[in-house]
């Protein structure tokens, strides 16, 4: 099987039905993409296929071979995407496990809809679970990356 991952051609010897998630993690050693549910319910494994957010646990290697795959490792050169910077500015992560998926979902959302409204952010990001409850900061970081000042009231005192 042939894949293009983060701009690099990769060749795999695997079952074409293997979910892209496990091919990335176990065969290509790209472990920034996380397993969370295996059923497309949590978004931890979100990657881009041709720039669109997809659950890599629900995409087979065969299907992915027709597209350009981008993982968190390829989102930017050394973490410089505006969302990665905003994530750091707002100290978003707690355990951090879901954050690669959150960042991949948010970056696809803003690429498609740069001026996404609060409600559009909320609905667009609701497929990505965070058990630590970093949602208020994810929302604020996306607003920051859009160039907006997030709700001042959100901050604690």
């Amino acid at each position: 099987m042939k894949l293009t991952v983060n701009g690099m051609p990769r060749e795999l010897d695997c079952d074409p039905d293997m979910p892209l998630l496990w091919a990335l993690r176990d065969l290509l050693q790209l472990r920034g993409t996380k397993y969370g549910c295996g059923k497309g319910l949590c978004g931890a494994c979100t990657v881009h296929l041709d720039g669109k957010a997809r659950r890599s646990c629900q995409v087979t290697v065969a299907e992915a071979s027709a597209a350009a795959v981008t993982t968190i490792e390829g989102l930017s050169d050394s973490g410089t995407h505006s969302l990665q910077q905003a994530w750091r500015q707002h100290n978003v992560p707690q355990c951090g496990y879901c954050q690669p998926g959150q960042l991949m979902a948010a970056s696809a959302l803003l690429a498609a809809n740069p001026a996404a409204s609060d409600d559009e952010i909320r609905s667009g990001m609701s497929g990505n679970l965070c058990r630590c409850g970093t949602y208020p900061r994810i929302h604020a970081a996306i607003k920051s990356a859009q160039g907006d000042v997030p709700l001042a009231e959100q901050a604690g005192d």
Partner: peptide, 9 residues
């Protein structure tokens, strides 16, 4: 761990 957590490492 902030940097690592935002780049997947």
């Amino acid at each position: 761990d902030l940097e690592d957590m935002t780049v997947g490492s």
